[in-house]
Design a protein around this nucleic acid. Structure first.
Lengths: 137, 137
DNA sequence: CTCCTAAGTCTGTATTTTGAACTCAGGCTG
DNA sequence: CAGCCTGAGTTCAAAATACAGACTTAGGAG
């Protein structure tokens, strides 16, 4: 968790990843959406790429030259629960209502939420959750 | 989510909250655990308190004067899923193995994990999760 | 051969972080 | 009661980062 915090813990990285989740892949689109300074965007994209959360790829639109952009890797996509958890928290404690985007099941269309489940798959409330040290050496 | 990222998105805030989840309440204990500069710790504790994630309280050990320290509010505790999600992600992609702390159900002792569930409470895999805009205005 | 655009790099200034020293309140010790 | 100790800060200068804006580069279009 400390390592994850080190990687994600800065003002822009989480927002850049959110853009990536939204499907934004191009430098200038991110820059406009976020109003992020170019040098910082360049730096963060490089770091995220180096850590394997984003992959740089070339693309070419018809009648245009090759360009490159970024998309989430599987490691990047696996951060979805973090995003969802932050969104759900923000909805409850920051804006007191649903945010404009949510998560759905692409088969049923149901809205999805994150829950704690035990080893048998049963849902457990946060009230009953405790931190515990693994393998009490 | 952007608001949550703004609040949590810095190198130290998440680590301070983790300390709070571990039960660390005192300034100097946090400072030692994290090796965080005093001025930054003071600043972050103030911000977290101002935002209602931590509450400052007085305590007094026998034969000692009153001091104060910090503990999580309910809004702070509600961030647990974010911490858990980050920890689970780190376990899979950063350290490739279980981290030294996990979450248990305090009644059964079962280890708990975060899962996406649909409106009926059924678990859904991340593969089937899509971002969607709410109330297509 | 000049213009345009996406994706950068460069540069000088402003803000933040850092580490180290200093403060302050109160109990304890001699 | 003078000085010491400890937890919880504040203050300061130096270093690192972020910022805004100008500049660069590659290739297609006019």
């Amino acid at each position: 968790m400390a390592l994850a915090a080190e990687l994600l813990g800065d003002r822009w990285t989480l927002l850049i990843l959110r853009e990536a989740f939204y499907g934004v892949q191009r430098y200038d689109d991110m820059r406009q959406d976020l109003s992020i300074p170019r040098s910082v965007l360049t730096d963060r994209l490089q770091k995220l790429t180096a850590h394997g959360l984003l992959a740089r790829f070339e693309y070419q639109e018809v009648g245009d030259r090759k360009r490159h952009a970024y998309r989430l890797t599987s490691a990047g996509r696996a951060l979805a629960p973090v995003m969802i958890a932050m969104t759900q928290w923000g909805e409850r404690f920051l804006i007191d209502g649903p945010s404009p985007v949510g998560i759905t099941d692409d088969r049923s269309g149901d809205w999805l939420t994150l829950r704690l489940v035990d080893e048998g798959g049963k849902q457990v409330s946060l009230e009953n959750a405790r931190m515990a040290r693994r393998s009490p050496a």
